[in-house]
C-alpha cells in the first residue's frame, strides 16, 4: 500500500516536471520576447529605445541565453517558490497572483462539492425510482445544465440578479473588503458572493455525474446480492445505502479528478463574465500582453492543482475501495 501511494506520488512528480516544460514552451512560443514587445509599446507612445539599451535589458532579464539555460534558471527558481518577475506589473509573479490563488481553488472546490451534494442524491433517487416523473425531471434538468453554456447561465444570473433583486452579481468581495487583509468578516463576505459562480460552474458537471451515479447504481441494484439482502428483510434504506451506493460511488471519485481541470477551465469563462478576482482573467490578460513569466507561472500552477486533484482522488479511491489495496500488494 505504501508502495502504491509512493508510485502515485512519483507519477505526480513526473507529471509536474512535464507540465513545467510545457509551461516554459508556452512562455517561449510567442514570436519576439518581452523586450521586443516593450519596444513596440514605447514606439506606439512615440518614444524609442536604442539597440544598446535593448541589449542591456535582454541581458538583465536573461533573455540572451539559449532556451535550455533559461529553462533551468526558471525551473530552479520555481522550486524555491519564485515564479519569476511579471514585466507588466513590475513585481514578482507570486505577489501578483497570491490573492487570486485561494479564490480560484475555493471556487473550483466549492463547485465540486456542490456537484456532489446535488448529483449524488439525485442520481440515487433516479436509479431507485427508475422511469418515475422525478427521474425524467432529473434527467431533463441535467440536460439543461449540460447544454446551456456557462457564459449564458452567468449572463442570465446577472440579468435576474439585477432586474429582479437589484443586486449587482459579480466580483467576489464587497468594495470595502476588496483589498482588506483576510479576516472572518472578509471570508463571510466571500461566501455571500461565491455561491453564484459556484452554482453556474457546478451545473455543467452535474448532468454527467447524475448519469454516472444512476447508471452504476442501476447495474448494482440488479445484482443477486441485492435480491438476497432484500429476501433477508433488510430495510430498503439500509439495503440501498450500505452496499450498492458504496459501489456506485467509485466512479464518482475518479470522475472528480477529470472534473477538476474542467472546472478550472470553466472558471476562466465565468470569472471573465462576472469579473471575479481569480487566476482566469489574469491569465487572459497576461497572454494578451505577452507577460510570459506571469502566463507560464499561472499555467504551471493550474497544472499542479490538476495533478494534486488527481492524486487526492486516487488516494480517496484507495480508502473507499479496498479492492485497490489488494491489487496494489
Amino acid at each position: 500500500m505504501a508502495l502504491y501511494i509512493g508510485k502515485r506520488v512519483l507519477y505526480g512528480f513526473i507529471a509536474i516536471w512535464i507540465i513545467s516544460i510545457l509551461s516554459f514552451i508556452i512562455i517561449q512560443l510567442p514570436p519576439g520576447d518581452y523586450v521586443s514587445s516593450y519596444i513596440a509599446n514605447l514606439a506606439a507612445q512615440g518614444s524609442s529605445l536604442d539597440q544598446a539599451e535593448a541589449e542591456n535589458l535582454r541581458i538583465f532579464y536573461g533573455l540572451d541565453k539559449p532556451w535550455h539555460i533559461q529553462y533551468l534558471k526558471w525551473a530552479s527558481r520555481i522550486v524555491t517558490g519564485d515564479l519569476g518577475y511579471s514585466f507588466e506589473w513590475e513585481k514578482p509573479v507570486m505577489s501578483v497572483i497570491q490573492g487570486r490563488i485561494l479564490t480560484t481553488v475555493l471556487l473550483a472546490l466549492f463547485a465540486l462539492v456542490f456537484t456532489w451534494l446535488f448529483a449524488i442524491p439525485i442520481g440515487i433517487y433516479s436509479a431507485v425510482h427508475k422511469y418515475s416523473i422525478g427521474d425524467y425531471l432529473a434527467t431533463f434538468l441535467g440536460f439543461l445544465g449540460l447544454a446551456i453554456p456557462d457564459f449564458l447561465i452567468a449572463l442570465i444570473a446577472m440579468w435576474f440578479g439585477y432586474s429582479i433583486f437589484g443586486w449587482s452579481v459579480g466580483g467576489l468581495f464587497s468594495p470595502e473588503f476588496g483589498t482588506a487583509p483576510w479576516s472572518i468578516a472578509k471570508f463571510l463576505d466571500l461566501m455571500k458572493h461565491l455561491w453564484v459562480p459556484v452554482i453556474i460552474l457546478g451545473t455543467a458537471g452535474m448532468a454527467a455525474m447524475i448519469r454516472v451515479v444512476r447508471a452504476n447504481l442501476l447495474d448494482e441494484l440488479s445484482k443477486p446480492y441485492v435480491v438476497t439482502a432484500r429476501a433477508k428483510g433488510i430495510s430498503e434504506w439500509k439495503l440501498i445505502m450500505k452496499y450498492p451506493v458504496r459501489m456506485a460511488l467509485n466512479p464518482v471519485i475518479s470522475m472528480s479528478a477529470y472534473l477538476l481541470p474542467y472546472l478550472i477551465s470553466g472558471s476562466v469563462i465565468v470569472s471573465v463574465v462576472l469579473s471575479l478576482p481569480t487566476l482566469g482573467p489574469t491569465l487572459l490578460k497576461s497572454l494578451l500582453s505577452q507577460d510570459s513569466y506571469l502566463a507560464g507561472g499561472i499555467i504551471f500552477l493550474i497544472g499542479i492543482f490538476t495533478i494534486l486533484g488527481t492524486l487526492i482522488s486516487d488516494l480517496l479511491l484507495l480508502w473507499i475501495d479496498p479492492r485497490i489495496k489488494f491489487e496494489a500488494r
Binding site: 508556452i26 512560443l29 479528478a257 477529470y258 481541470p261 474542467y262 478550472i264 477551465s265 470553466g266 476562466v268 469563462i269 491569465l283 487572459l284 497572454l287 502566463a295 499555467i299 493550474i302 490538476t306 488527481t310
Partner: peptide, 11 residues
C-alpha cells in the same frame, strides 16, 4: 482528456 482544453485553445 485531462487537459484544460479552453486554456490551451486560448494560448
Amino acid at each position: 482528456a485531462a487537459l484544460p482544453f479552453i486554456m490551451i485553445a486560448l494560448v
